[in-house]
């Protein structure tokens, strides 16, 4: 290896490490503050590593605040959204790929058109409608608007179109109804697509702030991002330790899941980029 090449590698390594440190800094800072004793947080000298670990911040966040409630809401809302999305999207995608009917092309056109509409655009009318039927401030308000997922249908359609029709014909001969074919054959086979979609959907809705901010005012219904803002706005600034512990707790599930299944996560979230 030539010296110039070694130098080049060293330089790029140094720059990449520097960049990675910059990327990590907010995470490190969050973790560091979350275990710092209060007096160290408010000392004017810069200290990245706390002198002693203050686990009390976590205890406080978990017992004296609504953080567990926010996490639970996050689970309910993301699981609810995902459940209904799949319940609606998979049969539709199956019909689009393995059945023929009048208006199939039109329906696919509709789905492509729906892909063009960002959620923010529909917020005002959906809010009006929900206010009208009185379901604002409920789990339904947080779940329902995301049930029709053009992106999900699109993704499942792409995947199911690659599965040979013979398999579904065999199931028909075996006596499965079309509904049974969807759930017993098509859905298990579409697991890779479902996983990618689930990762995308859960990440998007766990992290979403826009709609929870609009649809709910009740702190008991706050999803994690909404909740942490409640927390921050209630504390007058002297509870930084527990606040950062809460931020850590809220970020942790997805970050841990990402670290455990990096390839799937990267794929799922990159696929999500197709969505407008």
């Amino acid at each position: 290896m030539t010296a110039s090449r070694a130098l080049g590698r060293l330089a790029s390594l140094a720059l990449l490490l520097l960049g990675a440190f910059a990327i990590l800094l907010p995470f490190i800072w969050m973790l560091s503050l979350s275990v710092k004793p209060q007096d160290e947080i408010f000392s004017a000298t810069f200290q990245l590593i706390p002198s002693r670990l203050e686990w009390q911040n976590y205890v406080k966040a978990l017992t004296e605040t609504d953080v567990p409630r926010y996490l639970l809401n996050g689970v309910i809302v993301t699981a609810g959204i995902l459940f209904f999305q799949i319940l609606f999207a998979v049969p539709c995608a199956f019909a689009l790929t393995h059945r023929t009917f009048k208006g199939r092309t039109a329906l696919f056109g509709l789905i492509l058109a729906a892909l063009l509409v960002p959620f923010h655009v529909t917020a005002i009318p959906v809010f009006l409608g929900f206010a009208q039927i009185g379901i604002l401030n409920s789990y339904w308000a947080l779940i329902l608007p995301f049930v029709p997922t053009a992106f999900g249908i699109f993704l499942f359609r792409q995947f199911l179109s690659q599965i040979p029709a013979d398999l579904f014909d065999a199931a028909r001969v075996d006596g499965l109804s079309e509904t049974a074919i969807v759930w017993r054959i098509a859905f298990p086979l579409a697991m890779p697509a479902a996983t990618a979609f689930a990762i995308f959907s859960v990440t998007a809705h766990w992290n979403d702030l826009f709609w929870p901010l609009i649809a709910t005012t009740d702190p008991d219904l706050a999803t994690p991002p909404r909740g942490i803002l409640f927390f921050r706005d209630e504390e007058s600034g002297d509870d930084v330790g527990p606040l950062m512990a809460a931020a850590t707790l809220i970020t942790a599930p997805l970050v841990i899941a990402f670290l455990l299944a990096q390839r799937k996560f990267t794929q799922g979230l990159a696929t999500g980029g197709l969505k407008g």
Binding site: D166, A170, A171, V173, L189
Partner: peptide, 12 residues
């Protein structure tokens, strides 16, 4: 009963 060219076995 039908037997398919691709066998059409359910892979899962």
């Amino acid at each position: 009963a039908m037997v398919f060219q691709s066998y059409a076995l359910y892979p899962h």
